Simulated scan of single mutants.
Amino acid sequence: MSYVTCPSPGGASLGVDEPPRSERLRERVSPGTGRVLVVAALQASPHAVSRLRRLARAVARGRGLSAAAEEALAVIVSELATNVVLHSGSADLTMMLQSDDATLTVSVRDRGRWRERPSPRCEEADMDAEFGRGFALVDAYSVDSTVRCSDEGTLVRAVIAL
């Protein structure tokens, strides 16, 4: 299930006052989401996508996750990072992986602007497209996903069951 929260211009937003650097990670972590495994901040470029995917796979292997969980993590990280690179206009992106006994949470934040689709997606016409179904893949591989966007950027979180 996914949730999208995108305030209208001038509406509520995330982090209007930039917290001190030491508090920035905490603002992205809800209570109970587990222990932070890794945080990576990179320039939003195609190269960042492959680097983050390799990092995610290394974390999965290091934690002894199942092949299915590793695949889910790699796909989700790839899709979310690719969306930042292609669609956000952000100069950078930050990925955080958190884990508890039952779940692994992927968070990707950018400083770009949410862009609404000008018209609804025509699923039948999109079926043969080479791309454009990234968030559907994130939903398929996760048990929960959320998108929060504001004037300061977008935060996407996806939860993988272990």
Rank of each mutant, 00 (worst) to 15 (best):
V38T: 13
V38N: 04
V38D: 05
V39C: 13
A40T: 04
A40D: 12
A40C: 11
A41Y: 13
L42G: 01
L42Q: 10
Q43P: 07
Q43H: 14
A44C: 07
A44H: 03
A44D: 08
A44P: 10
S45K: 14
S45F: 08
P46W: 05
H47P: 00
H47G: 05
H47I: 00
A48S: 15
A48I: 04
V49N: 07
V49Y: 08
S50G: 06
S50M: 07
S50K: 02
S50P: 00
R51F: 05
R51M: 13
L52W: 05
L52R: 08
L52G: 07
R53N: 00
R53G: 00
L55D: 06
A56V: 04
A56N: 02
A56F: 06
R57Q: 12
R57F: 04
R57G: 08
R57T: 14
A58K: 13
A58S: 15
A60L: 09
R61H: 09
R61T: 03
G62P: 04
G62K: 01
G62T: 02
G62C: 06
G62F: 03
G62H: 01
R63E: 11
R63C: 11
R63A: 07
G64D: 06
L65M: 08
S66C: 10
S66E: 13
A68M: 09
A68C: 02
A68S: 13
A69V: 15
E70M: 09
E70A: 15
E71A: 12
E71L: 14
A72Y: 07
A72N: 15
L73C: 09
L73N: 03
L73W: 05
A74M: 12
A74R: 08
V75E: 02
V75Q: 00
I76C: 10
V77S: 12
V77K: 11
V77L: 12
V77H: 10
S78V: 03
E79I: 07
E79C: 10
E79P: 14
